[in-house]
Structures are given as C-alpha cells and as structure tokens.
Computed example of a mutant assay.
Amino acid sequence: MKALFFDVDGTLIDEVKHEIPASTLEALRRTREKGNKVFINSGRTVGMLKRIMEMVEVDGFLCGCGTELIYEGASIYYKKLSVEMKQRIKDASDRYGVLVHLEGQHGWHCQPSEKLLRDHPRYQALYENLAGFIGMEGGIDPTPYDGEYEISKFCIETDDGAESGHPSDMEGFREAFGDEFIIIDRGHGFYENVPIGHGKGAAVDRILDYLHLTRADAYGFGDSSNDEEMFRAVGHPVAMGQHDQVLEAYHPFITKRVEEDGIFYAMEQLGLL
C-alpha cells in the first residue's frame, strides 16, 4: 500500500477553469482500486475545501497546512489557536499594516479596517477578489468577524509601500509571531502562517505514522513553495509542469501541467495505476 498526497490549486485543480481534469479523477479512482490511499494535502482549512470535497473521492484530507487531519470522514487531529492568539492576530492588521486572513474549520474571515484601507489602498481590490473566489468555493464563515469562531492558521497580504508610502512592518510582524508560527513566503507579498510543529510535511508524518507506513511508501504531488515541507517528508516528490523553482532542490519527478493531464501522466509513469 502506498500513500499519495496532493496539493489542490495548480496540482489537482487548474487555476484558470478551477476544475479537476477527468484524467485526474480517473487516475485517483484507479490507484485507490489498487489499495493505495489518496489524501488532499492543502493549505486550505476544511471550511475552505467544501467544493473540493464534492468534486473528488479520496481517503482523507490534510487541511490547513496540517492543522487538521481527516481520515475516512473522521477528524483524527486538530490544532486550534487560542482566543487570545486570535485576538493578537486580528490586532496585528493595523499594527503592522497587513491584511489578515483568518482561517478555521468553518471557513475564512477577513475585515480590513477603514484605517488599513486608507493607508494601503491596494488591499481593497485584494480583499474583494479573494472574497469573491472564496465565496464561489463556499468557504466564507458567516459568523460575524468579532463573533465566536475558531481558527487554526492565518495568512497576510503585505504592502511594499511603493504606491501607498506606508510599507508593512514585516520586521515587527516577524518579531511578534516568528517564535510561534512558521512564516511561509508565498511570493508577491503573501505569507502563510502555520503554528510551529505543523505544516504539510508534519501532516504527512502524522498520517504515515497513523497508517504504519514509511517515507518510502509516500508520494507527494505539488507545485508551490508551501509544498516544500511535503517534498521533504515523502520518498517520491512529484512537481507539476508549472512549479515554484524552490521545489527542484528535492529532485522531483517533473510531470506535465495540470491541464495537460499531468497527474495521470505522472502516476502512470511511476507505476501507481
């Protein structure tokens, strides 16, 4: 039995049509019929994976960069941030000039203040675009921003100050949160913040231990910088045809692009079908 771990955006789903190719669904079905276990390993929390869950049949979901593990429909692990930490993160928005995205089991929260939008006008479009996309995915938590809800991770957008004259204080942000979170630079001023001890690699480790499998039994499919930890954790990393160059340090099998049947091609070449 092998364990296969898949990133979502740019790996299972193309980022233009936001669909899973029919060839990918066929490959997942066939490898599961052989007795292999298939997992979605995503930076999205479970509340932001609702549409994906309706699109594909898999054995489990590793959500929120490893902050929640779901196997055969049951949550077997969850890391919830404290109420105090959630408030600290919300306060960081105006303090460091960053647009904060809170992410939890029930979905996404974001509410930039008037001051933040006044100092950083570019955040308005970022907020509206992301709200539109996440709304389409069914990932917005309807609970009021200042209400009671849990989160397990968060992301931030930053401003270099070139247009606004108000650069984000990333030095201050790192000093405030760097001892408690892995701060992943996703590029273009976007940072994903995951509690220490978690991440896509830690998620793989926990599932392999749960299933009594080894690193040699694990295949990881990804395309972006937050897949780097997953590539470290698996014995067989697979990079999509379009991928972040940081992944090449792990000497992955490089397949075709997602829309070019890259998942099917890789699984066929690797003997997983």
Rank of each mutant, 00 (worst) to 15 (best):
P142T: 11
G135L: 06
L117Y: 11
E128P: 03
A125F: 09
G138T: 03
H120N: 12
G138V: 00
A162E: 09
L126Q: 13
Y123L: 09
D119H: 11
Y145N: 06
I156K: 12
T158W: 07
L126T: 11
T143W: 00
P112W: 07
A131K: 15
D141M: 02
C155P: 00
R122E: 14
G139K: 08
D169I: 02
H109Y: 11
K153P: 04
K115Y: 10
I140W: 12
T158Y: 03
E114Q: 11
E157A: 14
S152K: 01
F154S: 11
A131Y: 15
E163Y: 04
A125I: 13
Y149S: 05
E171H: 07
L116Q: 09
G165N: 04
D160I: 03
L117I: 08
E163T: 01
M136K: 14
E148H: 04
N129I: 13
P144E: 05
D119K: 12
L117K: 11
R174H: 13
Q111M: 08
G132V: 07
E163F: 06
D146K: 01
P144F: 01
E128I: 01
M136N: 12
T158S: 14
Y145W: 10
Y123K: 01
E175T: 06
E148M: 05
E128Y: 03
P112V: 00
P112G: 02
H109Q: 15
Y149H: 08
Q124R: 15
E171K: 10
R122G: 11
E171C: 02
I151V: 10
Q111T: 02
G147P: 04
D159M: 03
Y123P: 04
S164N: 08
M136L: 13
E171G: 15
M170G: 04
C110N: 09
H109R: 12
Y127M: 10
E137R: 07
E114A: 12
D119L: 14
G147A: 12
M136F: 15
D146V: 00
H166T: 10
Q111S: 11
H109V: 08
Q111K: 09
E150S: 13
Y127R: 03
D169M: 00
L117S: 12
A162I: 04
F133S: 08
E137C: 08
G161P: 06
E163C: 02
N129P: 00
F173R: 07
H109M: 10
K153A: 10
Q111Y: 05
Y149L: 07
Y149A: 05
A162N: 01
D159L: 01
D119F: 08
T158V: 04
H120M: 10
M136G: 10
G147Q: 02
T143Q: 02
E175W: 00
D159A: 07
D169G: 04
A125G: 03
P144Y: 07
